[in-house]
């Protein structure tokens, strides 16, 4: 039985097919990995660095962070609040003006996502004095937000253990994050 299989595998066509299959698998996996790491195409090339440079606070546009779970993505009315008074027009701002005119919301693509079996709330993190850049990277050096590498459970736990050892029981407890 075993010898039969070995003989079968020695046939050139079988080898070629196998090789192609393996290549396809590896290639597919690599493409998939690339897709997950690639910057998503945002509807507007929003420049975080410029806004931060001008002194806009993160919470101004993402006010959900101190209120609850999700930080929230700004609606066009939030953007337009300032931009209708700012004269300088760019192609990106034209897009914004178009959204406002059409009355549709900007289809932002969220980049910092948690799997759905994880419970995450911004509020306790902000309350504990964790800065946005601790997890989201230094946005003053980015235009559109970039996903941060390695946001996995080990990374969560590292912080949870180091930053508040006195609350470790609670902070490394499964029930704290898993739902």
């Amino acid at each position: 039985m075993g010898a039969k299989i070995v003989n079968f595998l020695k046939q050139p066509m079988v080898r070629a097919v196998l090789a192609i299959a393996v290549l396809a698998l590896v290639g597919g996996a690599a493409w998939g990995a690339y897709q997950t790491q690639r910057l998503p195409q945002q509807p507007i090339e929003f420049r975080h660095n410029l806004h931060i440079g001008l002194g806009v606070q993160c919470l101004y546009c993402h006010p959900g962070a101190w209120q609850g779970q999700s930080a929230g993505l700004p609606t066009q009315s939030k953007c337009w609040g300032c931009h209708q008074q700012i004269d300088r027009q760019t192609p990106e701002l034209d897009k914004l003006a178009q959204y406002v005119e059409d009355g549709v919301s900007i289809p932002w693509v969220p980049v910092a996502l948690m799997p759905d079996f994880v419970y995450f709330s911004h509020r306790p993190h902000i309350a504990a004095g964790v800065n946005c850049e601790t997890c989201h990277g230094d946005l003053s050096k980015m235009t559109v937000a970039e996903p941060q590498k390695g946001m996995d459970m080990g990374w969560c736990l590292k912080c949870h253990k180091e930053l508040a050892p006195e609350k470790e029981t609670k902070l490394i407890d499964c029930a704290t994050c898993h739902q």
Partner: peptide, 15 residues
């Protein structure tokens, strides 16, 4: 299937 020491509950970690 494990125990949450903080909440004293039995957990089922689905993933």
């Amino acid at each position: 299937t494990m125990h949450s020491e903080a909440e004293h509950l039995n957990m089922q970690v689905y993933n």
